[in-house]
Design a protein around this nucleic acid. Structure first.
Lengths: 159, 159
DNA sequence: GTTAGTCAATTCAAAAAGAGAAGTGACTTC
DNA sequence: GAAGTCACTTCTCTTTTTGAATTGACTAAC
């Protein structure tokens, strides 16, 4: 199986990975959340090649994660903005950031998150939607749906 | 700049992306959190090539995300387990899952998360560590450290 | 005591993706 | 009218990925 088959999987993690789970896409999203909107700023700030950037922006637009908007007619100029679907990826980027801050940083974190509502610097954490307590890997148990369970048992075997 | 330069960046998101931000690594992590431990189960359940799997497992081991442990001496057999650093990536995988469930799923979610402490099916959400309220992109403001800000201004220009 | 099977890989050739430099077109500013 | 900006596209070269086959150290079945 190749990466191009990921979108057709049942697993929603695999599908999410197919849409945004590569190095450059994640960096583009980081820049989006830092307020970057323009092609050459993405180029400059991510260091990726223009070829790749153009390709990824097209893919993200086709998926509905970002939209391309003219901000000048003459000369024709475009900028890129997150859609609601795109903005919803914030949790993914923040989760990566928290992990990076904890495990990969020598000094202080390069980016702090301020919660506008309460005004404080915050370290967003995952909490249970039911009881509100913070939740980590060992507090949780995964329960597979029956179709998904069957699909997994069948995987990799001759039919 | 190539992907191989990502680990040397100041940004902890870029560093995190360099360690775990690719398609197959994210799928391996999904399997880890579902309890998969053995080489051929990863092969079967992710559909990736054995070459890639061996390579990624080595990289993750070198980074300290997983560890390789013998579970049988004769014949020599190994299994892979998450380290604490690896288990801490749970938030990333869950964030991807929630996004996938919301935006990419036709039917019910294939995987439910049960909070062992309270016994309920939960949809983990990011909350502010200070006030405890749920937090999303528009509630937050990024504040860059000065060194990082300067690095960004300098990026892509001749020195 | 062969023969088949399991598991954890490694090897190899072909195909796909990425990197880096250069070029393009529609303008604006000096 | 020359130079610069922005949003790309094109080109070649290199690296990575794919997919199939193979290996080696065993065990279990006949």
């Amino acid at each position: 199986m190749s990466r191009t088959d990921l979108p057709s999987q049942t697993c929603t993690i695999a599908r999410a990975v197919a849409q945004v789970g590569d190095e450059w896409t994640l960096l583009i999203l980081r820049e989006m959340f830092l307020g970057t909107r323009r092609f050459d700023d993405f180029l400059r700030l991510t260091g990726m090649s223009s070829h790749l950037l153009a390709q990824r922006l097209k893919k993200l637009e086709a998926e509905g994660v970002i939209r391309r908007e003219p901000y000048s007619e003459r000369p024709p100029r475009y900028e890129y903005r997150l859609t609601e679907k795109g903005r919803d990826l914030w949790a993914v980027i923040i989760a990566l950031k928290q992990w990076g801050d904890r495990w990969l940083s020598a000094e202080d974190t390069p980016v702090q998150i301020v919660h506008k509502t309460c005004g404080q610097v915050t370290k967003p954490q995952l909490t249970c939607s039911d009881c509100g307590e913070p939740i980590e890997a060992h507090d949780a148990e995964a329960r597979l749906s029956q179709p998904f369970e069957l699909e997994r048992q069948a995987a990799g075997r001759a039919p």
